[in-house]
Design a protein around this nucleic acid. Sequence first.
RNA 1: GGCGGUAUGGUGCAGGGGUCAGCACGUCAGGUUCUCAACCUGAAAACCCGGGUUCGAUUCCCGGUACCGCUACCA
Length: 507
Amino acid sequence: MERSHIRKESDRMSALQKPRVRFAPSPTGYLHVGGARTALFNWLFAKHEGGTLLLRVEDTDVERNKPELVDGILVALKWLGIEWDEGPFFQSQRGAMYRAAAERILASGAGYPCYCKATAYAGGDYSATENDDHEGEGDDEGPKSLKAVACPCRDFSDAERAAREKEGIPRAIRFKTPRTGVTKFEDAVFGPREIQNADIEDFVLLRSSGVPTYQLSVVVDDIDMRITHILRGADHLSNTPKQVLIYHALGATPPIFAHVPLILGPDRTRLSKRHGATSVGSYADEGFLPEAFRNFLALLGWSTGDDSEFMRTSELIERFQLSGVSRTNAIFDRAKLEWYNTQYLQKPPVEELLPFVEGELRRAGLWKEVWATTERAWFAHAVDLIRPRTRLLTDFTGWARAFFSDEFDYEQEARDKFWKDEKVPSLLAKLTEALAALPDWNHDACDAALRGVAAAEGVKAGLLINATRVAIVGRAVAPPLFDTMVVLGKGRVVARLRRALALLSPR
RNA sequence: GGCGGUAUGGUGCAGGGGUCAGCACGUCAGGUUCUCAACCUGAAAACCCGGGUUCGAUUCCCGGUACCGCUACCA
């Protein structure tokens, strides 16, 4: 795997070789929008280049990981339409490989055993002044007020080590970072990077428990899995030099890095629960379409260079390039997301939308099988009529519920607004008779019947139209009335008018 | 504190040594309509600050500031 000759071999073929990328979530929570965006970029890049996407679960931290969360992450990725070609692989099952790598580094002299009690020699404040950390966010504790200093074990003699081994003191393995020189690497987004080795501490590779740290396991896996490009959050930018050091210690050539800027909340702080929904699952539940979400996410930190905004997934894939990735953190703008959702609800052919509406109706327990078979045309027609006014899939079971069920409420504001005229009951009664007598049920016939009643009663058609809308769909806001009547059908319209009349004139 | 990164309207992105600094979302005001959405018209709204370099900087360089990240036997 980390054999350098194999590595060189693949480098020689790199021009012909398709990229291999990976998305490597850690199961410490649900899939959040930042992770989703990283996954999306990896996927778009792989698709664009005809490469391969791997999924790797980074679950080396026994304390923090919750295996039951893995499934939720996979489900969220699938919802997003991101499919991986290989994996998922679990780091928790690859321990032997990491331990072997750590031992190799130790043997080569690039690492050393550390017998300190875990974090025992950490000391000193980052700052005397900035200890203003507000508690309560739960997610990021950790000794952020402590600074690691050089470990004394680095300079132990063989005798000193032997003594501790004999005592049976647990041993971690640290990287012996050179005290001089610089470490360089290339980042496709941030450009060439160079940092002083003196600024890199002797980080731990293998915990005293024998479990590897992130720094070691990523590198070992990325080498083993022949990853060619690492696309990940910019929060890893400062860690990269450490990893480059490990690559070298293992005799491997580092891949190309591409760090993507972070996504922040509206207050420019790291996105967290306090900003509202941050998990992609919650957006699915709220009624967002995966393609809309993808389009929105893709343009967070990436652009085509021209002013393209609405791009179907195929176009995203076609146009995605690392060179278009921005270096500035982006803020998650829900209003824009909603705009994208309306676009995807309204622009594509109705057929594309049908499965999603079906799903929504099923969730609400309103789905009827005939809509998939004998009444499919009706269903498509209804959806097409409703969708110009929708922002979320849940609108289909929300304000548009009356199209799919006879059980619906009369919205209070709608009644107050359009039923308040005292002529409404008698108007609706006359209209009911007129409609019931109609031989043909179509847009123009309904239109003529209603306007006839309005004219005969000396009222504006709008008054009756609005009152009728409330009567048959229970809402002030709904599609044009006569179209609605046609979709609902004569029987239901008349029945609903009668029901409304009963409500209006209680005995 | 140290190290690193970033800085264009409220937001997401363009742009670039000389432009009326562009697009989109959002906002506001009109128009249209049977409600609402859509649609049409119009409006307000930005190059962080200070030094350089230059005939000329929003653009290039340096400093400051702000923000973000890393600084864990977390990832």
